[in-house]
Design a protein around this nucleic acid. Structure first.
Length: 922
RNA sequence: GGGCCUGUAGCUCAGUUGGUUAGAGCACCGCCUUGAUAAGGCGGGGGUCAAUGGUUCGAGUCCAUUCAGGCCCA
């Protein structure tokens, strides 16, 4: 090692003559401080409105916002969703479209009502609704602030709310259309019922508690004519923990694939009988009832029993034998008692098998006359278990009884056990719109493509849509009842209701008396309004009517919907169905779905996990934009494959930070090198550009085109990768590194220097535009430092200019890079051996094969030295097949200004300078 | 249990119609630089392509099964 290497370099006396990068654009982003300032600036300038004004008249692109529920803070999943939408809106805008974005909120529904009712009991419906609205509006404000803070552009001052009177009126008008098309019917259906509170409950209002119930084995004698010999005189046997539902028994379900044994059984008292029992449960049956199998007469599959009938044990009617996949073999007999009015599976099975929905129980839990047993009428169902068991014993149908401890649902308020009770509900006849809906599915573009199958399967198999809810915080189901209880389900009446609601809101439904309403809608005296509200999926499913059709800036069908994959069954489906009803077509032209946010081990993360796991990471967006900044949240979104589950962790934010720093520092050095450059005066003509300039601008053209295409295909991840690679590889490692020498050391107005500044100017301009949708804050900030007074968000993506596409330069640089790799390896070896430090201390003897590397640049030593960042390069050609390089310590003096070790150093007048620097200083 | 989907380096992802030693960025390790400096450059290590079986001259890429995970149902 030379002595001069060890010497501490004296301060460069020529430093003042260098053109080092100068810019106020800070290296440190300080996003959490700067972003709010920029946000305030945008708001003060009315940037969103400016964008709308500027784009008015351009072709329109409508991304319709699916309304998040106005409950809780913005979760990372919600942030992902909104940022994806924003990436679409911003990129479509910069691609030349007019893409207004009207955000919305879903305001009605149980979770809010539940919260309100939990806080204080005994509220009137009007008060529940008042507080629910207050609650919803509070969270709308919270969420709106988060979305804005994340840099999402939209008409935040005029969002759509499903509680707006106009919106509510449109929901009711859609209901009128449903009625008009004869799609609405009324039918009993079992619901979770609290006899203590006298009301229907939702799943969320049920608490599971321990309860001991009587569990009984009951035999049902087969009663069909022409039974197979083995089944003559045989009995099916069911096991149930709700004896009180037996009066409503209308069927017995067997699993189609289970094996059932038909046989002669006897017990300790030598009573013999012929039973059917699931084979796998024979032992349990014997233990519990005392009846053990003596003679097996036959084995049959469950499906072979279908169509038979049994005699009801104490009522004068028969029960149907059916199959059901819900039948299990854990307990009982593999045969399930079916009371369609008292259970969800029972109901489904009952409907599929043409059974009545019998539910002889009133709202207080007492039997009605329908029960068929005079002694039981008026008795509470839980008081009826013993009399029924006694009756079964008397009829000889009771084979065994036991006490059974299990988790049983209880009402969260009255704490009483809940029962399944069938009440009248309203349904949409899906069958009548199904085929049209399926047709429409194939007219929509689904991204990813498998989304088509997902929703198709859902629509294909979905049962009729139950649209009534026994709730308060919702849009009223606009039906009335005559004094005799006859329902009035009328499109005309519904439209009158809608017109009134439009003026005063749905609270009026609850505030005005029945008599007032009857008068208003023209019904005879004595008519009363219904108490049901509409399923909230009707609310959001009407947005294409209540928002797209109503809002002057928007149109229907929308060009695009974007939501998480759960919405195939949810909003995408409800919107499709109601749009088929309202306009005979799908409400969207294309649909994008994204995955759910999962942690790095691939497990889902949800709000509910937060409470249970004390180590759980924060999952609300505010934590992340307050800690890292919105641009980092946005960069994270752009970096993932959103069509799958989206991995999320604090570690990923560290990773995004690294990418961010690279992007930011690249912008910074570009801006710094533009110091003193006036594009209008100093830019050079294209034909004056040097090889590397032509090459980088050709790369830039490529980047522009690929980014445009990726944005157009909603492939933000690809944009992220392209921009990262361009900044890290093409710019940072190559172009900027190579051109430092000319930028810093050449004369201010030197042609090479100006050529590179010209290129850098083009590059920086393009980068700011291409980055704008993703790094909305940072790109705008850099744009400002580029000398612009207005926001980058008012600009288009950079236009393609094919004249800069330069295959010749690209081919040359590709060859140069191959050689560069060889040289760098040789230099690295020398460096590891401590023979040299920086590249400029080396002299490289390059050997090239005779063939290949024929580009004229290989004859231009100064260009090669610059490209490889070397002081001195020599080349010889041999018959070797691959290039090779030998690295020697340079024998030349170091130029005090540019640090190159070249022969020119040592001449007068500046003995410590090379010729180039001598000229530059002069 | 059913429907739809996913499983490639520590992390996030590329891998065209099956065909040379499976790629990128980040992270990691070592070196250089101190004129992008709470920056920058160079070099390097790292993958049984979830597993098993099959089709094929040849499979990360096709088929089957299994395992793990997600959404929606039951």
């Amino acid at each position: 090692m030379s002595d001069k290497k060890k010497e501490k370099d004296a301060p460069n006396p020529y430093k003042e003559t260098l053109h080092l990068p100068v810019t106020e654009f800070p290296m440190r982003a300080s996003l959490t401080e700067r972003e709010p300032q920029r946000l305030a600036k945008w708001e003060a300038e009315g940037l969103y409105q400016q964008i709308q004004e500027k784009r008015r008249g351009s072709r329109k692109f409508i991304l319709h916002d699916g309304p998040p529920f106005a409950n809780g803070d913005v979760h990372m999943g919600t942030a992902l969703n909104k940022i994806l939408k924003d990436l679409v809106v911003k990129s479509k805008t910069m691609l030349g479209w007019h893409a207004p974005f009207v955000p919305g909120w879903d305001c009605h529904g149980l979770p809010i009502e539940f919260r309100v009712v939990k806080e204080s009991t005994g509220l009137t419906p009007v008060e529940v609704r008042r507080r629910s609205e207050e609650y919803a509006r509070k969270y709308i404000d919270i969420q709106r602030n988060s979305f804005k803070r994340l840099g999402v552009f939209g008409d935040w001052e005029n969002p759509y709310l499903t509680l707006d009177p106009g919106y509510e009126a449109d929901i009711i008008r859609v209901f009128a259309k449903l009625v008009e098309q004869d799609l609405v019917y009324r039918m009993k259906r079992p619901v979770l019922w609290s006899y203590g509170a006298g009301t229907a409950l939702a799943e969320a209002e049920v608490e599971y508690k321990d309860k001991v119930s009587p569990a009984i084995y009951v035999s049902f004698a087969l009663a069909s004519a022409n039974l197979p010999a083995a089944l003559e005189g045989a009995n099916l046997v069911i096991w149930t923990t709700t004896p009180w539902t037996l009066p409503a028994n209308l069927g017995i379900a067997l699993h189609p694939d289970f094996d059932y044994v038909v046989g002669e059984f006897t017990n300790a008292e030598n009573i013999a009988a012929r039973f059917v029992v699931a084979k796998s449960l024979l032992n349990e049956f014997a233990t519990k009832t005392g009846f053990s199998l003596v003679t097996e007469l036959a084995q049959m599959k469950g499906r072979e029993f279908v169509g038979l009938e049994t005699q009801h044990p104490f009522l004068p009617r028969t029960s149907k034998v059916i199959n059901g996949l819900f039948v299990t073999a854990d307990t009982g007999t593999g045969q399930v008692h079916i009371a369609p009015g008292h259970g969800a599976d029972d109901y489904q099975a009952g409907r599929e098998n043409g059974m009545e929905i019998l539910s002889p129980v009133d709202g207080r839990g007492h039997y009605t006359a329908e029960v068929g047993l005079p002694d039981l009428v008026g008795k509470h169902v839980f008081q009826a278990n013993e009399p029924i068991i006694a009756l079964l014993t008397e009829k000889g149908a009771l084979l065994a009884r036991e006490s059974y401890a299990h988790q049983y649902p209880h009402c969260w308020r009255s704490k009483t056990p809940i029962i399944f009770r069938a009440v009248e509900q309203y349904f949409i006849r899906v069958e009548q719109i199904r085929s049209k809906a399926l047709e429409e599915i194939d007219r929509v573009k689904w991204l990813p493509a498998w989304g088509r199958n997902r929703i198709y399967g859902t629509v294909e198999s979905r049962p009729d849509w139950c649209i009534s809810r026994q709730r308060t915080w919702g849009v009223p189901l606009p039906v009335f009842y005559h004094a005799d209880g006859t329902p009035v389900v009328s499109a005309e009446v519904a439209r009158k209701v809608a017109d009134i609601i439009e003026q005063v809101g749905t609270n009026a439904w609850f505030e005005k008396s029945d008599a007032e309403w009857a008068t208003l809608v023209g019904l005879p005296e004595g008519a009363v309004k219904g108490n049901d509200t509409l399923d909230v999926w009707i609310d959001s499913g009407c947005s294409h009517v209540a928002v797209l059709d109503r809002h002057p800036e928007l149109h229907s069908p929308a060009d695009l919907y974007i939501e998480a994959t759960d919405q195939h069954r949810g909003w995408f489906q409800s919107s499709l169905m109601l749009s088929v009803v309202a306009r005979g077509a799908a409400p969207y032209k294309s649909v994008i779905t994204h995955g759910f946010v999962v942690d790095t081990s691939g497990k889902k993360v949800s709000k509910s996990d937060q409470g249970n796991d004390k180590n759980a990471k924060p999952m609300t967006a505010d934590h992340y934009y307050n800690k890292y900044g919105a641009d980092l949240v946005r960069l994270w979104v752009s970096s993932v494959d959103y069509q799958n589950e989206v991995p999320f962790s604090e570690e990923l934010f560290q990773q995004a930070s690294e990418s961010y720093r690279r992007l930011r520092n690249t912008l910074r050095v570009l801006l710094g090198n533009l110091d003193g450059f006036n594009a209008a005066e100093d830019a050079v003509e294209a034909d004056q550009l040097t090889l590397v300039d032509r090459w980088i601008l050709s790369q830039l053209e490529n980047l522009k085109q690929e980014c445009r295409e990726a944005y157009d295909a909603y492939d933000f991840r690809k944009v992220f990768v392209l921009l990262n690679q361009f900044c890290a590889v093409d710019l940072s490692a190559l172009y900027v590194d190579i051109t430092k020498d000319r930028l810093y050391c050449d004369a201010t107005s030197g042609l090479r220097r100006r050529a590179t500044q010209t290129a850098i100017h083009r590059i920086t301009d393009a980068l700011c535009r291409l980055l704008a949708p993703i790094l909305s804050f940072t790109a705008d900030e850099a744009w400002e430092y580029l000398g612009h007074q207005t926001s980058v968000h008012l600009e288009d993506f950079p236009e393609l200019d094919p004249s800069y596409v330069n295959p010749e330069a690209t081919a040359a640089v590709q060859e140069l890079l191959k050689v560069r790799a060889v040289i760098q390896q040789a230099i690295e070896k020398a460096r590891q051996e401590k023979r040299i430090g920086s590249n400029l201390e080396a002299t490289v003897e390059l050997t090239l094969p005779e063939s290949g590397f024929q580009h004229p640049v290989f004859e231009a030593l100064p260009t090669l030295e610059e490209f490889f960042i070397l002081s001195v390069l020599t080349i010889k050609r041999t018959d070797a097949s691959e290039p090779s390089a030998v690295v020697l310590e340079s024998p030349h003096q170091k130029c005090a200004r540019c640090w190159k070790h070249v022969p020119a150093v040592g001449h007068q007048p500046h003995a410590d300078l090379c010729d180039r620097c001598d000229e530059a200083v002069a």
